[in-house]
């Protein structure tokens, strides 16, 4: 297990390095930053001055090395828009997005895995069909629209929950549901199909031939094997949710990373965009790494080659 974890960690580090490269060069190649910083109608001397001042005239490789060296220490420079260190703002906003994402994944997993298992236990029953219908609707509906529907029903008509801001835990309920509904259908359907496949397998027949009780067959022998592919998918879905949180945070005016990313892009705040993209990519990499570890724990064939 240790060798396996070390291998996965090394791989994750390599991916992180690659992502930092892409993150730096994409911004530098997409536009001339000095021109963008100087703003419209700037004189050539001003642009030149900015170029020299910020060191944009040096080779890109040197700039990258310097940027990475500082990024590793948590220094992403000053925000062009807010005029204060990028890291400071990012650390302020991160908890909001982390809370939202945490609630959303809890709701998504807590809903989709039991529903997927139940649907697989009684395939083609009314419950299975209902779950399928919910999943199809969830996959088809744009999340911002579903978010608006939630706001209308629970915020405006019923008045049960706040619809804007991040002051209390109650503020996170609707956005978390909206975000979870975006991720849950794929997880549910994979749980169902995985469970159906496992329930038809020879070792489940063996478990029944041993006289094991239905609950032991289901939870000990079937579920563990069925969730192995689900773990990997859940990590990917959680990553997508970070992307989806840009939309959801904007709709619910939550002051999180997603909202910040939107603002930064709007204001050509390059250091900020780079920092957020890198951070989200790193979160994604960590999630994938954790999923790899979980799979290694669940499946000895992965752990012991």
């Amino acid at each position: 297990m240790l060798a396996y974890a070390a291998k996965r960690a090394l791989l994750a580090a390599l991916v992180a390095l690659t992502v930092s490269l892409a993150c730096f060069f994409l911004v530098h190649l997409s536009t001339d930053i000095a021109v963008a910083m100087a703003g419209e109608g700037a004189r050539a001397e001003d642009i030149d001055f900015i170029r020299k001042q910020y060191g944009f005239d040096r080779p890109l490789g040197v700039q990258y090395a310097e940027w990475l060296g500082r990024a590793v220490r948590g220094d992403f420079g000053d925000s062009l828009y807010f005029r204060i260190p990028v890291a400071k703002i990012v650390w302020q906003r991160l908890p909001v997005t982390a809370t939202l994402g945490g609630y959303a994944i809890l709701i998504a997993l807590g809903l989709s895995i039991p529903l997927g298992v139940l649907a697989a236990m009684r395939p083609n029953s009314w419950l299975d069909r209902l779950a399928l219908a919910i999943a199809v609707v969830g996959q088809a509906m744009p999340s911002f629209w579903f978010a608006l529907l939630l706001m209308l029903l629970f915020g405006v008509t019923l008045g049960w929950l706040p619809i804007s801001g991040s002051d209390t835990q109650a503020h996170f309920v609707l956005p978390a549901i909206a975000l979870a509904y975006y991720a849950a259908p794929a997880i549910m359907r994979l749980t169902r199909s995985g469970m159906l496949e496992v329930l038809g397998s020879d070792y489940i027949r063996t478990a029944r031939a041993k006289g094991l009780r239905p609950m032991a067959v289901l939870f000990k022998h079937a579920l563990r094997n069925a969730v192995i592919p689900v773990v990997a998918l859940a990590a990917v879905q959680l990553g997508f949710m970070l992307g989806g949180s840009v939309v959801i945070e904007t709709v619910f005016a939550l002051n999180g990373l997603g909202y910040l990313a939107w603002e930064a892009i709007l204001h050509n705040d390059f250091p900020m965009v780079q920092a957020i993209v890198l951070l989200i990519a790193l979160i994604y990499i960590v999630l994938t790494f954790l999923a790899d570890l979980a799979n290694g724990w669940l499946d000895p064939r992965i752990r012991i080659a």
Partner: peptide
């Protein structure tokens, strides 16, 4: 059973 390769739980 007939299939020893698949009759034991891999986990």
């Amino acid at each position: 059973f007939q299939e020893p390769m698949t009759s034991l739980n891999p986990a």
